[in-house]
Design a protein around this nucleic acid. Structure first.
Lengths: 202, 202
DNA sequence: ATTTTTGTTAACCAAATAGTTAAACTGAAC
DNA sequence: GTTCAGTTTAACTATTTGGTTAACAAAAAT
């Protein structure tokens, strides 16, 4: 049986990702990461100079791995309703596969707002203009109800992301297990889309 | 001119609140809190035995100070649409006065889900049943469109809270300053209410 | 006035934790 | 098989940080 060979560097990044995402920059211990990777702590400093460098790599990697997936939809050439559907479905699907990333990103972001904008969005800032314009046009044409495009955008993102950020709270409040919550999110893809379109349709 | 006298204990709790909320439990340093309060570090241990005790006090205080404000609305005896309006207005108003509390709570909650449910919700668990029932009844009566009550609840909470949790991100993406963002939230009280009611109205 | 209790401080301690080093191991090139 | 660069390890160091202590000051009780 073939065993996938994993380089030490890969072991480290995988372990660091897990530990940083679950415990945050301040909560993570270098020893935890070493243990998780099953290697000596000194290796962390051999491959990455220090904790900060390692963290930065993981953070940007985690963020840039799923950010484009959402960002591109905003820029796609589609009718508004299709775009809304596509956005909700893709966003929730991505989050189902990376449920702990948003709280991680938001948390670190609140501590270092400047770093974020500078380093993480230098390459791919949010392509939000296209959607905003599209909404404005459809409002003017009378295709949808009058609504502030920014508010609509906030609504869309909020409804997709927040249930993942506040998962433990909702789970406790609603008395749901992992599977039930996951199913709720699965259904949510279509429920949210309908909810939004119902609201803005004339 | 009268100067308000602040006891050492009050100085500590005020400083601890500020530091814990901005840096989190793990990120906060006892020395930071002492400096912020303008006192000797030993005083922290004199009034509160250790960091954990101090943190717990701040956490529960921060949480229980605004949780009931929202929770009670869920239980109020009102028609559904009024309740939705009341909920959105109150929730956002409370958050405008405590903008950093949600990310703080959610963050610590993700690290200690058990502690939360046990200690913080022992006294006042979410009164969510009343609203759920109310939605179900109005759906059956045909007063509103068919919708999963839980999903509607998630939508309401998400749209209210998330813009505060992700404030730095939205602010950067939309190029807004503090005042502009605040105004956006102010408007949001009524915009969100309308958005929801438009969606579920027949 | 004197004692006792409470509040406050600087200096110190112990544990945790990031980071370093020197030696040992490995595997390929010669 | 010797050498040599890259890799890995155990032991160590330096620093940070939560927590303690003993002396001191202020206030309250006697």
């Amino acid at each position: 049986m073939m065993v996938k060979q994993e380089s030490t560097e890969e072991k480290i990044t995988a372990a660091a990702k897990k530990v940083f995402i679950t415990k945050g920059m301040m909560g993570a211990r270098m020893q935890d990461i070493a243990d998780e990777a099953g290697i000596n702590k000194a290796m962390l400093h051999y491959y990455f100079r220090n904790k900060e460098k390692l963290f930065e790599k993981i953070f940007t990697e985690a963020f840039t791995s799923f950010w484009p997936q959402i960002n591109n939809i905003l820029d796609a050439d589609m009718p508004l309703f299709s775009k809304i559907e596509s956005f909700c479905h893709s966003y929730i699907e991505v989050l189902l596969n990376n449920p702990y990333v948003p709280i991680f990103v938001l948390n670190e972001l609140n501590r270092q707002p400047a770093m974020f904008i500078q380093k993480v969005w230098k390459s791919g800032p949010p392509k939000v203009g296209s959607l905003i314009q599209q909404i404005e046009i459809d409002v003017k044409k009378g295709k949808i109800k009058a609504i502030n495009p920014v508010q609509l955008l906030l609504n869309m993102v909020s409804m997709c992301v927040f249930p993942f950020v506040a998962k433990p709270m909702f789970q406790a409040a609603l008395g749901m297990n992992e599977l039930q919550y996951r199913q709720l999110m699965e259904i949510r893809k279509v429920e949210i889309t309908r909810f939004i379109i119902d609201s803005i349709s004339k």
